[in-house]
Design a protein around this nucleic acid. Structure first.
Length: 477
RNA sequence: GCUCCCUUCGUCUAGAGGCCCAGGACAUAGCCCUCUCAAGGCUGUAACACGGGUUCGAAUCCCGUAGGGAGCGCCA
């Protein structure tokens, strides 16, 4: 669905959402879901979706992560109206390139005296935090530099001490807002310590750059992880001091593992890359994510466009959602079964022997697709169908032994006559032995594949190179 | 420690005082179909964390308890 397929109700400002990752690692499930939800939230109202890279931490941010992030998002089917590779007048979309704007806004705040330089060193701050914690108190900034006189500030500056800029949080006030997922929220400013808005190296800190960018980029709805909920008052304070409009904030619960603890490598693969490499379909992942912490009356595999139409922020969950790979597997199976012939070929091609005839390839895939969830499920069948005669697994040894020589000589003869036509072979065996049902088919399956279970025999046989079937049947004659 | 968030079947969830001895989907069990598996059809098992209130009536409102999570960073 294109952004213009649904137009915003006239008179209402266009909805703008964003995904704002920091390029300090691989895109993981939680972030991918946040991105998806924001995309859907925008598209649902015919709005715009932005991608902003929060790379203010020069030490940890890597360009390669940004590139990978964008590739992962696109793989999932998420595309943005504006972003680092699609700049517009609200950009640039990399925070590392927005220093001028931040400097202007710092100046606005400095004029109001809501900012003050803090000369405390990281070790000092760490010490203070630890002391407070062990005294059973909240580890907040102690306010050491809050009320320095101009002379004291000048003296420290003269010593060459690098200063951060802190936000002077007012005392005794209450910050309220309506979280569009959780409802009304209220925080006391006395519980909030003065926080850093500009680092000693001059770069903008998260609370500041994130809030300012949302305002200047015209973001109307910021849907993010619940870990940001208690930080929201700080950002509201900044925006209020700047006289900028805040977006509506909504916080989705975190994704947890099967045991209810925060999702980690211990539970499952957490990066999108791993799922992609294991052969998961992007649509499978999107469908699972769509229903994780979000509910819809719709059943079955949905396209991104359908998800956008059905997305409803009112049905965003407040409780943490457990990520279970088994559930993802259900969507994966659905997605695989819905694969077009071309897509299925592309999906399984890496497993197939090179130089295979196109018709054989297609027959093989058609036979196998209903029985596989991941490419690895198809792997053994490549050998069974295209390799040498398969050894019998123990479960079917007796099936073959009990069939009797007449069974297989009839089968082999039919195979020689009619090629890999299952019904011709079955007819011949039926005529020769009088068998029917499982007694008729199981020895064929066993001799042909070595296994008791597998894809349907007729299509599988069509994929098998000529002569192979006859050879396999003849070996028990 | 302080502040905040959360708690309905195994899982994702519906539910905004009577429509709920709680509905759906997936998972799971049984049956049917069937050469096996898968698919499909039918049937079933299965949950309001706990304790107090308020009310004629509570999954829904209030208080508390327990458990889980987040934040309190010159990380985002």
């Amino acid at each position: 669905m294109s952004a213009s397929a649904i137009s915003a109700p006239s008179g209402e400002p266009q909805r703008v959402t964003r995904f704002a990752p920091s390029p300090t690692g691989e895109l993981h499930l939680g972030n991918a879901r946040t991105a998806l939800f924001n995309l859907l939230l925008a598209r649902n109202a015919g709005g715009r979706f932005l991608l902003r890279i929060e790379d203010t931490d020069a030490e940890r941010s890597l360009d390669s992560y940004t590139t990978a992030l964008m590739a992962d998002l696109r793989w999932l089917g998420i595309d943005w109206d504006a972003g680092p590779d699609r700049e517009d007048e609200r950009g640039p979309y990399r925070q590392s390139q927005r220093g001028t704007l931040y400097a202007q806004q710092f100046a606005v705040l400095e004029r109001q005296d809501v900012l003050y330089p803090c000369f405390c060193s990281p070790p000092e701050l760490e010490l203070s935090r630890r002391a407070q914690l062990s005294a059973g108190k909240p580890p907040r900034y102690a306010g050491t530099c809050r009320d320095l006189t101009p002379a004291e500030r000048a003296r420290r500056q003269a010593q060459g001490l690098a200063a951060t800029l802190r936000f002077r949080v007012p005392r005794g006030e209450r910050v309220t807002f309506v979280d569009f997922v959780h409802g009304p929220q209220s925080f006391l400013t006395d519980d909030i310590g003065d926080f850093v808005v500009r680092r000693a190296d001059g770069s903008a800190a998260f609370f500041f750059s994130n809030a300012v960018d949302d305002a200047f980029m015209g973001v109307t709805q910021a849907l993010r992880g619940e870990d940001h909920l208690t930080n929201t008052p700080r950002q509201l304070l900044i925006l209020a001091a700047l006289g900028l409009a805040a977006p509506a904030y909504g916080h989705v619960s975190l994704i947890v593992g099967a045991d209810g603890t925060p999702l980690s490598k211990r539970h499952a693969a957490v990066s999108l890359r791993e799922y992609r490499e294991r052969g998961y379909q992007p649509l499978a992942l999107a469908n699972h994510l769509f229903r994780l912490g979000h509910s819809t009356p719709l059943h079955g595999l949905l396209t991104l466009a359908e998800m956008a139409r059905a997305f409803d922020a009112a049905h965003l969950g407040r409780a943490p959602s457990r990520f279970e790979e088994q559930q993802l597997g259900v969507w994966q199976k659905e997605a695989v079964h819905h694969l077009s012939a071309d897509a299925a070929r592309a999906w399984l091609a890496p497993l197939l022997p090179v130089g295979l005839d196109e018709r054989v390839t297609d027959a093989f895939i058609a036979a196998l697709l209903p029985n596989v969830v991941l490419p690895e499920d198809a792997r053994p069948w490549v050998d069974i169908v295209f390799g040498g005669p398969p050894a019998l697994e123990p479960a079917v040894e007796e099936v073959v032994r009990n069939a009797g020589a007449g069974y297989f000589s009839a089968a082999a003869a039919a195979a020689a006559r009619s090629g890999n036509d299952l019904s011709a072979i079955a007819d011949a065996v039926r005529a020769a032995t009088g068998r029917q049902g499982a007694a008729l088919y199981m020895p064929l399956r066993a001799a042909l594949t070595g296994r008791a279970h597998g894809p349907e025999l007729a299509p599988l046989l069509r994929a098998m190179p000529a002569g192979k079937a006859r050879e396999r049947l003849a070996r028990f004659a």
